[in-house]
Design a binder for these strands. Structure first.
Lengths: 157, 157
DNA sequence: GCCAATCAGGACCATCCCGGTCCAGTTAGC
DNA sequence: GCTAACTGGACCGGGATGGTCCTGATTGGC
């Protein structure tokens, strides 16, 4: 299934959401606007800040803001920030864990080309590619001030 | 981390090992030769047989044999057989599970191009690509009959 | 015709990792 | 000084994964 962590999925949503505004946005505000539990969003944002994808402003009236435009953020970066370096299996050069049967394993280290291929593929696609097209126009939030955000981001339903 | 299941890793090793002989090989024999617990190898082989990558011969003197040369088996097939269809996240068209906040999610369904890119990358690399080159010559088991396999597959070193 | 070897297919369990929550601490505006 | 917000850590439960075992079906040999 090639499982990608759910946190990474959230991160993409959060980043796209963050791109919709010019000022900083608080994690409670973002959480409310995308319908993800607040502590989880906070954790994602903290990780993204540590990874240098977003900037954090502490204190009152603080929040997070995007450091680069979506078009300059390949998904590989997001995945690497949240999930750690992109590597398929344990049998990769970087990993410290040696597979126990390495003396017998006939293809040890051979996952590298596969990893490279995947890394290339993921580096070629940016968040902007994921955002544009086929997104319902209703959700293209156009730089709305965060002030009243928590009140009316939810479509009337 | 983009975790790939360990079973898939085993499957690759098993398939490469299977390619080293012309006749059928039993699962205990393969297990002994690659240093992986026998029941686990049996499970992998069963799955591979169900997926059409190997053929099984039941009864006494039965075993498994490869159906295609390694060069005709893209890793995407192995992964799909063991781990299920290649899909990164839950937010994919094929998945029946709807993400609960789909009304709010601004990029729903947008993982598809990413999945396609990864699928292409994995389809372009075959098991032969992973086997050849940079493998110690000692491990290039040259079509050795399975009869005495369990005794001397371990290179003297 | 019987027996042994081997695959088939399931149930089953333990362990690890992930997702999610919470708390104490720090910073910055008012 | 107080409050709002980020920071960093610990913490815990659930689910998936890896691994084992058992029973049955099939085939070849004696």
């Amino acid at each position: 299934m090639l499982r990608l962590s759910k946190l990474t999925d959230y991160a993409v949503v959060v980043l796209v959401r963050l791109a919709g505004t010019e000022g900083v946005q608080t994690s409670p505000g973002i959480a409310a606007s995308i319908g993800i539990p607040e502590p989880t969003v906070a954790k994602v944002l903290k990780t993204l800040a540590a990874g240098g994808l977003v900037a954090s402003q502490r204190g009152a009236r603080g929040g997070y803001r995007l450091l680069r435009p979506l078009s300059a953020i390949p998904i590989a970066d997001v995945i690497a920030t949240i999930d750690g370096p992109i590597a398929l299996a344990a049998c990769v050069d970087g990993s410290a864990t040696e597979c126990e049967s390495q003396g017998l394993c006939p293809i040890r280290g051979r996952w590298d080309p596969v990893n490279d291929a995947i890394h290339q593929a993921l580096s070629a696609i940016t968040l902007a590619d994921m955002q544009e097209a086929s997104v319902p126009r209703a959700f293209r939030v156009p730089a709305r001030p965060a002030a009243t955000a928590s009140a009316n981001v939810l479509p009337a339903e």
